[in-house]
């Protein structure tokens, strides 16, 4: 546990050692602002909630989260520091978890910086704060899902650009797997049960369920098991690919 925290602290600090953290947070705030106020017609709707704000998160994360995740293992392998990290008396699970949690904490910080949105709706109207809290929780869980995918993929390659592109593609598939664009590829040949399973893997469906303010344990369990599965894959992949 304390070893995991050591990795966590180093990783989190390293985001702020470079301009990455600041650039990311500024771009994140800028884009959420644009999407919410212009595309989401935040004021015109005449409703005091953060629906338009949250509805863009899946699409924002689709590109921003892989940008955070791509460096997690690819950089470590490229620079050779992975040899140092994995010969310290730290278990691989601690290293994987510490890195993931640091990246997740960083996205949480970026997300927390959007609190003026919340203040704005609270000032303008009388929003349902429970729904907003659920929205933030759902957004954070979804970011964790994307991050876990990105972390696993970044252990496949030493090249961060390749890791980024593959992560975006995988995340995209999981985002829209409930939409016709993916389902149509299955309905033609697969039994309905398989189609249902594919549809149930959609980030979007589960995220929207949570942001509607209905905190269903199944939606939370979905994201948690998604994160667990990808982190396990991450562990196996790092072990298999560290030398290559």
């Amino acid at each position: 546990m304390s070893r995991m925290l050591t990795v966590f602290r180093r990783e989190l600090a390293s985001y702020f050692n470079t301009p990455l953290a600041y650039v990311f947070i500024i771009i994140f705030l800028f884009l959420t602002g644009i999407f919410t106020f212009y595309l989401g017609n935040f004021f015109g709707r005449g409703q005091a909630d953060l629906k338009p704000f949250f509805s863009f998160h899946p699409w924002l994360y689709l590109f921003l989260v892989p940008a955070i995740a791509m460096r997690l293992w690819a950089e470590e392998r490229k620079s050779g520091s992975i040899e140092l990290l994995l010969t310290l008396p730290i278990s691989l699970a601690d290293a994987v978890l510490g890195k993931f949690l640091a990246a997740w904490a960083f996205t949480a910080i970026a997300l927390a910086c959007t609190f003026p949105m919340w203040l704005t709706v609270a000032y303008l109207g009388d929003p349902d704060h429970g729904v907003i809290v659920a929205g933030y929780l759902g957004s954070l869980l979804m970011a964790g899902g994307y991050l876990a995918i990105g972390s696993a993929v970044s252990s496949l390659s030493k090249n961060q650009v390749i890791a980024f592109v593959i992560t975006v593609v995988v995340c995209f598939l999981f985002t829209v797997s409930g939409a016709p664009i993916v389902l149509d590829a299955f309905t033609a040949w697969a039994p309905q049960r398989v189609v249902d399973i594919v549809a149930s893997l959609s980030f979007l469906t589960h995220f929207e369920a949570i942001t509607n303010g209905v905190l269903d344990l199944r939606d939370i369990f979905y994201f948690v098991s998604m994160i667990g599965f990808w982190l396990f894959a991450n562990l196996v992949l790092v072990d298999a690919r560290k030398a290559a």
Binding site: R3, T6, V7, R9, R10, A13, S14, N17, T18, S79, G80, S81, E83, L84, T87, L88, P89, I90
Partner: peptide
């Protein structure tokens, strides 16, 4: 691993850290 001190080939390190913070990290990890 706890009994070993290891200098890998090419002396890899975390480039964005300072030696002070890097060594502090190694000590904590140990």
């Amino acid at each position: 691993k706890a009994a070993i001190g290891y200098l890998p080939e090419g002396a890899p390190a975390y480039g964005d850290m300072t030696p002070a913070s890097f060594l502090a990290f190694a000590a904590r990890a140990r």
